[in-house]
């Protein structure tokens, strides 16, 4: 049984169907990538799973418990933690305090980290501990977002475009940090558009289009799938691309 099981998940915003019956199984020992064109429902999937938006239908269960619509903070307390597409922080507080807030929340239920400083070391932000979060350069802000999420001691981390806005070397360094997580018992599910990075990093890829899952499997298989190529490259360019 996978730790996170999503069954028939639906989300409608008025007349727009953002998620149309999604089924997912995600364990805590892998890196799973979710890809798809803009508007395919990737971020909505994260928002509904983590309780930011209520589901219109279907169920989400985590470690055997139904967590559909129980509220964002309760889901985070069950160690299912997400980051946001826009790099988020507590901007007026120091980097150390940002991580400490998350760490203290996680510590109430037993933390894998002995101190907030360990998390800063892990993501490489230790020298910036006393800087004000709002004054960080974007790359560091992305790391801080990850550090805050890790502070809660997640068992599964949902990363929404962690590489967006980073340059190549920053993105590679970030990917290296992410790759260290599953061996430590922190599963990762991430959304990103960088196909090279995704196929290197992910053990499994899931492709969404118009709110439905159109493919799932090993990265190489998925990228060779004709339906996926059609969605990404358009039907007319299929021949040119292959």
């Amino acid at each position: 049984m996978a730790a996170l099981e999503v069954r028939g998940l639906r989300k409608q915003f008025g007349g727009v169907v953002a998620l149309n019956g999604i089924d997912l199984d995600i364990g805590t020992d892998q890196v799973v990538g979710i890809v798809g064109p803009n508007g395919s429902g990737k971020t909505t999937l994260f928002n509904v799973v983590t309780g930011v938006h209520p589901a219109t239908g279907g169920t989400v269960s985590w470690q055997g418990q139904d967590i559909t619509n129980i509220g964002a903070h309760r889901i985070a307390r069950k160690r299912l933690v997400r980051t946001f597409q826009q790099a988020m922080s507590f901007p007026g507080l120091t980097v150390y305090e940002n991580v400490r807030i998350a760490w203290e929340q996680g510590r109430m239920r037993g933390s894998r980290w002995a101190s907030p400083g360990m998390i800063l070391d892990f993501v490489g932000l230790a020298p910036l501990g006393r800087a004000i979060a709002g004054s960080l350069p974007f790359g560091s802000l992305r790391r801080l977002g990850l550090a805050v999420a890790l502070g809660v001691s997640p068992e599964l981390l949902l990363l929404d475009e962690p590489g967006a806005g980073l340059n190549d070397s920053e993105a590679q360094a970030f990917a290296a940090v992410i790759a260290q997580l599953p061996p430590q018992g922190i599963g990762v599910c991430l959304i990103d558009h960088d196909m090279d990075m995704m196929s290197d990093l992910c053990d499994r890829l899931i492709v969404l289009d118009f709110g439905t899952k159109i493919a799932e499997g090993l990265p190489a298989e998925v990228l060779a799938d004709s339906k996926v190529r059609e969605v990404y490259l358009g039907p007319n360019r299929k021949a040119a691309a292959s």
């Binding site: 930011v52 985070a76 946001f84 988020m88 507590f90 007026g92 807030i101 929340q105 999420a149």
Partner: peptide
């Protein structure tokens, strides 16, 4: 610190379990 987290960013505060 919990209160300051809410002041600074409510959505992020929720997502860390507050």
């Amino acid at each position: 610190r919990t209160l300051r987290a809410i002041r600074e960013n409510e959505q992020l505060a929720r997502s860390v379990g507050i």
